[in-house]
């Protein structure tokens, strides 16, 4: 059986909120190393890969592999009932029909309990290759959100160009064009504001802003976001969580002209 308890429901609420508009039905694959999810959007443009390691929970117990087939719209409805600071416990039997969720507000001695019906989801597990990216950019997640929102007003796509001088986000649309350039920036006193660019070779790729703004819903999960780019391969956008857990999005580039 599965039993996994989070100190604050916040993490799970934000993670589900960040992916629910991209994918509808997906399996939460549980085993002794944690809870993983991999799902692709219907148009095959974006892939979500989430790993919540066992260490993120206390306690965590899962004796065998359990796939929880969940409709994310339904899960969102249930999670709305959880306070951000409630503890959240997920429980399921070995061959479950339901996922049991318990929210506890210890200060108020209030316990709420929900059973969410599960579904059978036949999902192909795709292999995500280890990629040596040409450019890896670490930047504040709030800054990335601001850039995608601002450029969305100009165009439906953005070109991300990484060079030794910095990273440039630019968009051209009917009303004109705009760009934002960030240079490497490592303030000693404010590590959350760090912009770091690791570059093995310059790279420029174009992406749909609709998807990128969607990914930015994960912003509350992490102060920093990592963008990994290589020519003609999917962009990886990573929100790192404590203890090696993560929420990653892969986005297909727009190729050709």
């Amino acid at each position: 059986m599965l039993e996994a308890r989070l100190d604050t429901a916040n993490l799970f609420k934000s993670a589900v909120d960040a992916i629910k508009d991209l994918v509808q039905d997906c399996n939460f694959d549980c085993n002794d190393s944690g809870i993983a999810l991999q799902a692709m959007d219907n148009s095959h443009v974006a892939l979500v890969s989430m790993m919540l390691k066992a260490e993120a929970f206390s306690p965590f117990r899962c004796d065998r592999n359990i796939a929880l087939g969940v409709n994310l719209t339904s899960l969102t409805k249930v999670l709305r009932a959880a306070g951000r600071d409630d503890t959240l416990t997920l429980k399921a039997e070995d061959a479950p029909d339901v996922l049991n969720l318990v929210f506890e507000a210890t200060a108020q001695d209030r316990i709420s309990e929900y059973d969410l019906k599960l579904m059978d989801i036949d999902q192909e597990h795709l292999g995500i290759p280890d990629t040596e990216y040409a450019a890896t950019i670490s930047m504040p997640s709030a800054e990335f959100k601001r850039i995608t929102t601002d450029l969305m007003a100009m165009s439906e796509s953005v070109t991300i160009e990484a060079t030794k001088d910095g990273v440039k986000f630019s968009s051209t649309g009917d009303i004109g064009n705009g760009s934002i350039t960030l240079r490497q920036h490592t303030p000693v006193d404010k590590p959350n504001e760090t912009v770091e660019i690791e570059l093995s070779e310059p790279v420029a790729l174009t992406f749909s802003l609709k998807y990128l703004t969607n990914f930015c819903k994960a912003q509350p999960l992490s102060n920093q976001v990592k963008l990994c780019l290589s020519a003609e391969v999917p962009l990886m956008v990573e929100y790192g969580l404590e203890g090696g857990s993560y929420l990653r999005f892969y986005l297909a580039p727009k190729i050709g002209d």
């Binding site: 795709l126 999917p234 297909a252 580039p253 190729i255």
Partner: peptide, 14 residues
Amino acid sequence: APFQLDLYNYFLTS
């Protein structure tokens, strides 16, 4: 017009 890489095929073959 630019086309978008099909991620399904990408991850299936890689």
